[in-house]
Computed example of a mutant assay.
Amino acid sequence: MADVAEEFGRLYGYAPEGVWEAPGRVNLIGEHTDYNDGFVMPFALPHTAVAAFGRRTDTAVRAHSADLPGEPVVVAEPAPGTSAGWADYVASVVWALREAGHEVGGVDVHLASTVPTGAGLSSSAALEVVVALALNDLFGLGLERQELATLCQRAENVYVGAPTGIMDQTASACCTAGHALFLDTRDLTRRQVPFDLAAVGLRLLVVDTQVKHAHSEGEYGKRRAGCEAGAAELGVTALRDVPFTELPAALDRLSSAEIRGLVRHIVTENHRVERVISLLDAGDVRGIGPVLVEGHASLRDDFRVSCPELDLVVDSAVAAGALGARMTGGGFGGSAIVLVEEAAAGQVEKAVLEAFASRGLREPRVFTAVPGAGARRLR
């Protein structure tokens, strides 16, 4: 925190008014369901975006990242259609708040983040939420956490141009330590579900493959459009409205194998979220392992967003004794999660690293995910 504040002073010539942080997230189960009005279950990582802020006397935004060389990026008047690279994630939140009628002036920002980028761990949402929380405090807006998350989603959808759902921003803003967050993305009701793995002798590994396939963004949009087409063919508002028990009949009514796969994944994935909640409520944490593996198979075969590296993590981890594993995030690269017995964590990690090395692949980054706190002010 001191380093961020000190660097802010060096950059801008005055002390910041405060320092805030917001976390990245891992999604335990519920993938690609959030833009289908479905169920998700993320939890916050201890990895965070930390930012120091100061108010300006004009309406401009100056933003600097500790991870990038050079002078601060200046956005004189944030608006969709302009492009300031990474600083769009700052300027877009300022724009979204102003567009919603809130009186937000200009700011200077210095940011440092430990959330891995391109790993499917919501580094962009962490940045958006830390900006929103700081602006909320600095300008006395009085907005609730979910309101901030919803405005951050609008910033990313409209200003940045990424058609993301509401999960990532809500997780960063609303998660609590030691819990996974069950979120109904239709009505935004939330429940904190205890998820203390260490207490039952378990560990959840995150394996960042450090690969991102270039076609990911366009393919993400195609999946979303395909889900909307499937909902239209079935005459429902969203695929959330297709009951799990009626899935076989619904699939028979669809026009193509591609759309059938998308619909099957969304409906079964919502059911998997409900199964995981039931298991956790019953204290059967180990029982979620097979559900994770089922979820990966669905993402690989029906939704077709996995890739060889993610499949290799899951296959090698399960073969080495993991209780379960699946890709997490949008897919086409990024990260997988692996549920293991504490005593077996070392051998499973070793097996995954050896599997990558034997195929001449870049060594993945592996770390333990401990459910952390949501966004907060540090000083």
Rank of each mutant, 00 (worst) to 15 (best):
M1V: 10
A5R: 08
G9M: 05
Y14E: 13
E17D: 12
G18H: 11
R25P: 09
N27E: 09
A52F: 01
A52T: 03
V61A: 00
A66N: 04
G70F: 12
A76R: 15
T82C: 05
G85E: 02
H102K: 13
V104M: 12
G105K: 13
A112W: 11
A119T: 14
A126L: 05
N136D: 13
D137T: 10
D137Q: 09
G140T: 09
L141T: 05
L148H: 02
E156V: 11
M167R: 06
D168M: 11
L183M: 12
D187T: 10
R190D: 02
R190T: 15
T209W: 09
E217D: 15
K222L: 14
R224D: 11
C227E: 11
A231W: 11
L234D: 08
H265A: 13
V267H: 10
I277Q: 10
I288H: 01
P290V: 04
H296W: 03
S298R: 03
L299C: 10
F303W: 01
C307L: 02
V313I: 04
D315S: 08
G321H: 00
F332W: 15
S335T: 14
G346D: 15
L353D: 12
S358L: 07
L361Q: 13
L361G: 04
E363S: 14
F367G: 01
V370N: 01
R376L: 00
L378G: 08
